[in-house]
Amino acid sequence: MPEGLRIDRPGVTDGAALWRLARDSRTLDLNSSYSYLLWCRDFAGTSAVARDTDGRPVGFVTGYLRPERPHTLLVWQVAVDPAHRGRGLAGALLDGLTARVARQHPLTTLETTITPGNTASERLFASYAARHGATVEHEVLFAADRFPDGPHEPEVLHRIGPLLRVGVPAR
Protein backbone atom coordinates (compact mmCIF):
# COMPACT_ATOMS: atom_id res chain seq x y z
CA MET A 1 0.00 0.00 0.00
CA PRO A 2 1.48 3.37 -0.94
CA GLU A 3 2.54 5.39 2.07
CA GLY A 4 -0.01 7.88 3.39
CA LEU A 5 -2.99 6.09 1.87
CA ARG A 6 -5.50 3.72 3.40
CA ILE A 7 -8.17 1.40 2.04
CA ASP A 8 -11.71 1.77 3.31
CA ARG A 9 -15.28 0.87 2.47
CA PRO A 10 -16.99 3.56 0.40
CA GLY A 11 -19.97 5.43 1.80
CA VAL A 12 -22.72 7.39 0.06
CA THR A 13 -20.75 10.58 0.70
CA ASP A 14 -18.02 9.16 -1.59
CA GLY A 15 -20.33 8.71 -4.59
CA ALA A 16 -19.56 12.08 -6.18
CA ALA A 17 -15.81 11.57 -5.80
CA LEU A 18 -16.00 8.11 -7.39
CA TRP A 19 -17.97 9.58 -10.29
CA ARG A 20 -15.27 12.26 -10.76
CA LEU A 21 -12.46 9.67 -10.61
CA ALA A 22 -14.24 7.58 -13.25
CA ARG A 23 -14.82 10.66 -15.42
CA ASP A 24 -11.22 11.81 -15.10
CA SER A 25 -9.86 8.34 -15.96
CA ARG A 26 -10.86 8.91 -19.60
CA THR A 27 -10.91 5.13 -20.10
CA LEU A 28 -13.89 3.98 -18.06
CA ASP A 29 -17.46 4.09 -19.26
CA LEU A 30 -18.91 6.94 -17.22
CA ASN A 31 -22.20 6.02 -15.60
CA SER A 32 -24.67 8.46 -14.08
CA SER A 33 -23.70 10.13 -10.83
CA TYR A 34 -26.80 8.51 -9.36
CA SER A 35 -25.38 5.05 -10.09
CA TYR A 36 -22.19 5.82 -8.12
CA LEU A 37 -24.29 6.99 -5.17
CA LEU A 38 -26.31 3.77 -5.29
CA TRP A 39 -23.14 1.70 -5.68
CA CYS A 40 -21.65 3.26 -2.55
CA ARG A 41 -24.85 2.52 -0.65
CA ASP A 42 -25.78 -0.95 -1.92
CA PHE A 43 -22.42 -2.51 -2.85
CA ALA A 44 -20.04 -0.95 -0.31
CA GLY A 45 -19.28 -4.41 1.08
CA THR A 46 -17.86 -5.53 -2.26
CA SER A 47 -16.16 -2.26 -3.17
CA ALA A 48 -13.17 -0.34 -1.80
CA VAL A 49 -11.90 3.21 -1.79
CA ALA A 50 -8.36 4.49 -1.21
CA ARG A 51 -8.17 7.63 0.89
CA ASP A 52 -5.38 10.17 1.28
CA THR A 53 -4.34 11.59 4.64
CA ASP A 54 -7.26 14.05 4.52
CA GLY A 55 -9.75 11.23 3.89
CA ARG A 56 -10.38 12.17 0.26
CA PRO A 57 -10.92 9.30 -2.21
CA VAL A 58 -7.97 8.95 -4.60
CA GLY A 59 -8.87 5.55 -6.05
CA PHE A 60 -11.58 2.94 -6.01
CA VAL A 61 -12.63 -0.49 -7.10
CA THR A 62 -16.29 -1.42 -7.38
CA GLY A 63 -17.59 -4.95 -7.54
CA TYR A 64 -20.35 -7.34 -6.62
CA LEU A 65 -20.87 -11.02 -5.95
CA ARG A 66 -22.59 -12.58 -8.95
CA PRO A 67 -26.07 -13.79 -7.96
CA GLU A 68 -25.79 -16.93 -10.12
CA ARG A 69 -22.18 -17.56 -8.96
CA PRO A 70 -21.91 -16.30 -5.38
CA HIS A 71 -18.26 -17.40 -5.09
CA THR A 72 -17.36 -15.04 -7.94
CA LEU A 73 -16.53 -11.38 -7.41
CA LEU A 74 -17.16 -9.31 -10.55
CA VAL A 75 -14.98 -6.20 -10.56
CA TRP A 76 -16.92 -3.50 -12.36
CA GLN A 77 -14.55 -0.52 -12.34
CA VAL A 78 -11.09 0.42 -11.07
CA ALA A 79 -9.87 4.01 -11.12
CA VAL A 80 -6.92 5.84 -9.58
CA ASP A 81 -6.37 9.59 -9.49
CA PRO A 82 -3.60 10.53 -11.98
CA ALA A 83 -1.42 11.93 -9.16
CA HIS A 84 -1.39 8.50 -7.47
CA ARG A 85 -0.85 6.23 -10.48
CA GLY A 86 2.24 4.07 -10.89
CA ARG A 87 2.58 3.35 -7.17
CA GLY A 88 0.75 0.01 -6.98
CA LEU A 89 -2.46 1.49 -5.63
CA ALA A 90 -4.82 -0.35 -8.01
CA GLY A 91 -3.21 -3.69 -7.11
CA ALA A 92 -3.40 -2.88 -3.40
CA LEU A 93 -7.08 -2.01 -3.78
CA LEU A 94 -7.79 -5.33 -5.54
CA ASP A 95 -5.82 -7.32 -2.96
CA GLY A 96 -7.47 -5.51 -0.05
CA LEU A 97 -10.96 -5.86 -1.44
CA THR A 98 -10.70 -9.56 -2.26
CA ALA A 99 -9.16 -10.32 1.14
CA ARG A 100 -12.04 -8.50 2.86
CA VAL A 101 -14.71 -10.21 0.74
CA ALA A 102 -13.07 -13.62 1.23
CA ARG A 103 -13.28 -13.22 5.02
CA GLN A 104 -17.07 -13.04 4.69
CA HIS A 105 -17.81 -15.22 1.62
CA PRO A 106 -16.03 -18.20 0.07
CA LEU A 107 -14.33 -16.58 -2.93
CA THR A 108 -12.94 -18.77 -5.70
CA THR A 109 -13.03 -16.55 -8.78
CA LEU A 110 -12.60 -12.93 -9.79
CA GLU A 111 -14.05 -11.67 -13.06
CA THR A 112 -13.73 -8.38 -14.89
CA THR A 113 -14.20 -7.12 -18.42
CA ILE A 114 -11.55 -5.21 -20.33
CA THR A 115 -11.77 -3.62 -23.76
CA PRO A 116 -9.11 -4.67 -26.28
CA GLY A 117 -6.00 -2.51 -26.10
CA ASN A 118 -6.40 -1.49 -22.45
CA THR A 119 -2.96 -2.83 -21.59
CA ALA A 120 -2.84 -1.17 -18.16
CA SER A 121 -5.93 -3.09 -17.03
CA GLU A 122 -4.70 -6.29 -18.67
CA ARG A 123 -1.42 -6.00 -16.74
CA LEU A 124 -3.20 -5.16 -13.48
CA PHE A 125 -5.37 -8.27 -13.59
CA ALA A 126 -2.62 -10.57 -14.92
CA SER A 127 -0.43 -9.42 -12.02
CA TYR A 128 -3.29 -10.02 -9.60
CA ALA A 129 -3.69 -13.57 -10.95
CA ALA A 130 0.02 -14.27 -10.55
CA ARG A 131 0.07 -12.96 -6.95
CA HIS A 132 -2.83 -15.24 -6.06
CA GLY A 133 -1.70 -18.41 -7.83
CA ALA A 134 -4.51 -18.29 -10.39
CA THR A 135 -4.88 -18.63 -14.12
CA VAL A 136 -6.70 -16.23 -16.45
CA GLU A 137 -9.22 -17.28 -19.09
CA HIS A 138 -10.45 -14.83 -21.74
CA GLU A 139 -13.63 -14.76 -23.81
CA VAL A 140 -15.73 -12.04 -25.40
CA LEU A 141 -18.60 -11.38 -23.01
CA PHE A 142 -20.34 -8.64 -24.96
CA ALA A 143 -19.59 -8.16 -28.67
CA ALA A 144 -19.49 -4.62 -30.02
CA ASP A 145 -22.86 -5.02 -31.74
CA ARG A 146 -24.59 -5.67 -28.38
CA PHE A 147 -24.24 -2.02 -27.33
CA PRO A 148 -27.26 0.02 -28.45
CA ASP A 149 -25.79 3.48 -27.82
CA GLY A 150 -23.27 3.74 -30.62
CA PRO A 151 -19.79 2.48 -31.25
CA HIS A 152 -18.37 0.50 -28.37
CA GLU A 153 -15.49 -1.92 -28.30
CA PRO A 154 -16.22 -5.49 -27.24
CA GLU A 155 -15.93 -6.27 -23.54
CA VAL A 156 -13.61 -9.23 -23.00
CA LEU A 157 -14.25 -11.26 -19.85
CA HIS A 158 -11.15 -12.09 -17.81
CA ARG A 159 -11.95 -14.95 -15.43
CA ILE A 160 -9.28 -15.39 -12.75
CA GLY A 161 -9.24 -18.53 -10.64
CA PRO A 162 -9.16 -20.62 -8.76
CA LEU A 163 -8.02 -18.14 -6.14
CA LEU A 164 -5.64 -20.11 -3.97
CA ARG A 165 -4.05 -17.38 -1.90
CA VAL A 166 -6.59 -14.60 -1.46
CA GLY A 167 -5.14 -12.18 1.04
CA VAL A 168 -1.76 -13.96 0.99
CA PRO A 169 0.39 -12.72 -1.92
CA ALA A 170 2.79 -15.23 -3.47
CA ARG A 171 6.42 -14.90 -2.40
Rank of each mutant, 00 (worst) to 15 (best):
S25L: 14
D81C: 06
A16K: 03
T98I: 05
L124T: 05
C40D: 01
D54E: 15
T98C: 10
I7V: 11
R131K: 09
L30Y: 04
D95P: 01
Q77C: 02
L107V: 04
G59S: 10
L107R: 00
F147H: 01
L73F: 14
V168A: 15
L124M: 09
L30C: 04
Y34D: 15
L141N: 02
S121V: 07
G45F: 00
L141C: 10
T135F: 09
S35A: 15
S32N: 13
R26I: 04
G88Q: 08
L110H: 06
A144S: 12
A134S: 13
G133H: 11
R159Y: 14
A48K: 03
L107S: 00
L163K: 01
G11D: 11
P169C: 09
R165L: 11
Y34I: 10
R6Q: 12
G63N: 05
A90I: 06
P10R: 02
A99R: 02
D149R: 05
G96E: 09
Y128P: 01
G117M: 13
V140A: 11
L97W: 00
V58D: 02
L18Y: 05
L141V: 06
R85D: 09
Y128T: 04
A44W: 08
V140D: 03
H138T: 14
Y34R: 15
R146L: 12
R159C: 14
V140R: 08
T135W: 11
V136Q: 04
I114F: 01
R100W: 11
G150A: 03
T53R: 12
L37G: 15
T46A: 08
A17N: 07
A79G: 07
L107A: 07
G167M: 02
G15L: 06
T62G: 10
H132A: 03
G15Y: 06
N31M: 09
A170Q: 13
R56Y: 09
V75P: 00
P2L: 07
P148E: 01
L21Y: 03
R23E: 15
P67R: 12
R6G: 14
P106Y: 13
T115W: 10
T119D: 14
G63Q: 02
E68M: 14
T62R: 08
T98R: 00
I160M: 10
P148Y: 06
S121W: 06
I114V: 13
L110K: 00
D54Y: 11
D8H: 14
D81W: 02
L164Y: 01
T72W: 03
N31Q: 09
R9M: 10
E155D: 15
C40S: 04
V75H: 03
A44Y: 06
A130F: 07
L93D: 03
V78W: 00
H105K: 07
R131M: 10
T98W: 00
V168K: 15
